[in-house]
Simulated scan of single mutants.
Amino acid sequence: MRDDFLKAYDRQLRGEGEVGGAVRAERHGPLWWAEFDDGWGFVTYADAAAVPGAEVDALVAETVAHFRDATSVERFEWKTRGHDLPADLGERLVAHGLVADEEETVMIGEAAALAVAVELPAGVVVRRAGVGGGLADDVRRARAMQDEVFGRGPGRSLEAAVAELTDTDEAQLWLAEAGGAVVSAGRLVRVPGTEFAGLWGGATLAGWRGRGIYRALTSARAAAALDLGVRYLQSDCTAMSRPILERSGLVAVTTTTPYLWERS
């Protein structure tokens, strides 16, 4: 199962599948260079053997020069995976001034196996943002909760986040509320042209963890994914989220480590 999931991931989600939402994207040899509306740049490629070791140093130098001289981004991310080649890719990126961020685990599961009933604590309700509440207000409150959990500062604008969720089912935000307060939230984003949807931005307030709320949120998003005709669900998760997603039925297939460059 893991090998089948990994093959589907490499075939469908790498390269072009990762830059579909970019405001600008271009090919450079085996690489994709992209810029997103949150001011970030992004670098990826289609498969684990796409960047030969003898060429990678030149490609990294060319990538740094591109984002430094031909764009206005303040930072870019080169997304690596644990099964990437060359094996010393991370060391080569560091040698060119990039810094490794936190390693995450790539998790994949069948949507049909994840859409199961999960009992919620009394008083907790799971719903899609904009259904039973105003969309912009739901997004604002969910972002405030996620910022509290992750400690993040300003990033993508509220307007851009709301626009992504407007007039389409392809991107959805789901909330868990207790007493009118958002205690957990996460997005479902279908990847066009693939069998996948991503589970992104999942977070639960510390005082509400361990009660099955995030598993219920995952189940709700899995059911919504099935309605969209999705087969697989994928998430890049932290060590905190991995056990929850494993209990929900997702399988660890590889790791991913972002290497970050920032304009000095």
Rank of each mutant, 00 (worst) to 15 (best):
R2N: 14
D3I: 14
K7Q: 05
A8T: 02
R11V: 01
L13F: 06
G15V: 11
G15T: 11
E16H: 10
G21D: 15
A22C: 02
E26M: 13
E26I: 07
E26F: 09
G29W: 04
G29I: 07
P30S: 12
W33D: 07
E35T: 13
F36D: 11
D37V: 10
D38W: 12
G39L: 09
V51K: 01
A54V: 11
D57F: 15
D57E: 15
T71M: 11
V73F: 01
E77T: 05
E77C: 05
W78F: 04
R81D: 05
R81S: 08
G82N: 13
H83W: 13
H83K: 05
D88W: 14
L89K: 11
L98T: 08
A100G: 10
E102Q: 06
E103P: 09
E104W: 10
E104A: 14
V106Y: 15
G109Y: 08
E110Y: 03
E110H: 10
A113N: 08
V118D: 06
E119F: 02
L120H: 05
L120W: 02
P121E: 03
G132L: 01
G134H: 05
G134D: 15
A142I: 03
A144W: 05
A144I: 11
M145H: 03
M145G: 11
D147H: 08
G151Y: 12
G151H: 09
G153N: 09
G155V: 09
L158R: 05
T168E: 12
D169Y: 02
E170A: 07
Q172S: 00
L173W: 00
L173V: 01
L173E: 00
L173Q: 00
W174N: 00
E177K: 00
G179K: 10
G180V: 14
V182P: 00
V183W: 08
S184H: 03
S184A: 15
A185H: 02
A185S: 15
L188Y: 04
R190A: 13
V191S: 08
E195R: 13
E195W: 12
F196K: 13
F196T: 03
A197S: 13
G198R: 15
G198N: 14
W200V: 09
G201M: 09
A206P: 10
G207D: 13
R209L: 09
R209E: 14
I213D: 05
I213V: 15
A220P: 02
D227E: 08
G229P: 02
G229R: 02
R231I: 06
Y232Q: 05
L233H: 10
S235R: 08
C237Q: 08
T238P: 13
M240S: 12
M240H: 12
R242C: 04
L245K: 03
G249C: 09
G249H: 03
V251R: 04
V253S: 07
T256F: 13
T257R: 14
T257P: 12
L260E: 06
E262Y: 01
R263Q: 08
S264A: 13
S264L: 04
S264N: 07
